Amino acid sequence: MILPKPVMRGMLAKRLRFHLPAALGLSILTALVFKYTVTEPRKAAYAEFYKHYDADKEFNAMREAGVFQSVQPVEK
């Protein structure tokens, strides 16, 4: 039994016609899923956190706790 020779001419172009659009579509789909399941909720969480965040209050709490070496706690 003799095996037929494989067709090599034009094989890359033939495979790319299917694989290139499939890879492009999957990459776009993955990027959209990542955007709406990871980045958008993260941006909303950051916005919610900084809506009520008071940097001066946080600084004073850390200063009172003695976190900073160059800032002495305020004597009351």
Rank of each mutant, 00 (worst) to 15 (best):
F18W: 07
H19T: 14
H19Y: 09
H19L: 15
P21I: 09
P21L: 10
P21N: 08
A22I: 05
A22S: 07
A23N: 07
A23H: 03
A23M: 11
A23F: 07
A23S: 06
A23D: 04
A23T: 04
L24H: 13
L24F: 13
L24Y: 11
L24N: 12
L24W: 14
G25H: 07
G25F: 13
G25T: 06
L26Y: 04
L26R: 07
L26K: 04
L26E: 08
S27L: 15
S27Q: 09
I28G: 08
L29Y: 11
L29F: 15
L29Q: 09
T30M: 15
T30R: 09
T30F: 15
A31T: 07
A31V: 03
A31N: 07
A31Y: 05
A31L: 11
L32R: 07
L32Y: 08
L32S: 09
L32K: 06
L32N: 05
L32M: 13
F34Y: 12
F34D: 08
F34H: 09
F34C: 11
K35D: 14
K35C: 12
T37D: 02
V38S: 10
V38K: 09
V38G: 04
V38E: 07
T39S: 14
T39I: 10
T39V: 12
T39R: 12
E40N: 06
E40R: 01
E40K: 06
E40D: 12
E40V: 13
E40A: 05
P41F: 02
P41D: 00
P41R: 01
P41W: 02
P41N: 00
R42I: 07
R42C: 08
R42A: 13
K43N: 15
K43W: 10
K43P: 03
K43R: 14
K43T: 10
K43G: 05
A44Y: 08
A45H: 11
A45D: 15
A45Y: 12
Y46H: 13
A47M: 14
A47V: 09
A47T: 14
A47D: 15
E48S: 12
E48K: 13
F49R: 11
Y50N: 06
Y50V: 04
Y50P: 00
H52V: 11
H52S: 15
H52Q: 13
H52L: 05
H52W: 06
Y53F: 12
Y53M: 06
Y53V: 01
Y53N: 10
D54N: 15
D54M: 05
D54R: 07
D54L: 02
A55Q: 13
D56Y: 10
E58A: 12
E58R: 08
E58F: 02
F59E: 00
F59I: 02
F59H: 11
N60R: 02
A61G: 03
A61Q: 06
A61M: 05
A61H: 02
A61T: 08
A61W: 01
A61R: 05
M62E: 10
M62N: 14
M62K: 15
M62C: 09
M62S: 09
R63A: 08
R63M: 00
R63D: 00
R63Q: 06
E64R: 05
E64G: 03
A65S: 10
A65R: 04
A65W: 00
G66A: 09
V67C: 03
V67T: 11
V67D: 03
F68E: 01
F68V: 03
F68Y: 15
F68N: 05
Q69F: 01
Q69G: 00
Q69C: 03
Q69P: 01
S70A: 15
S70D: 13
S70M: 13
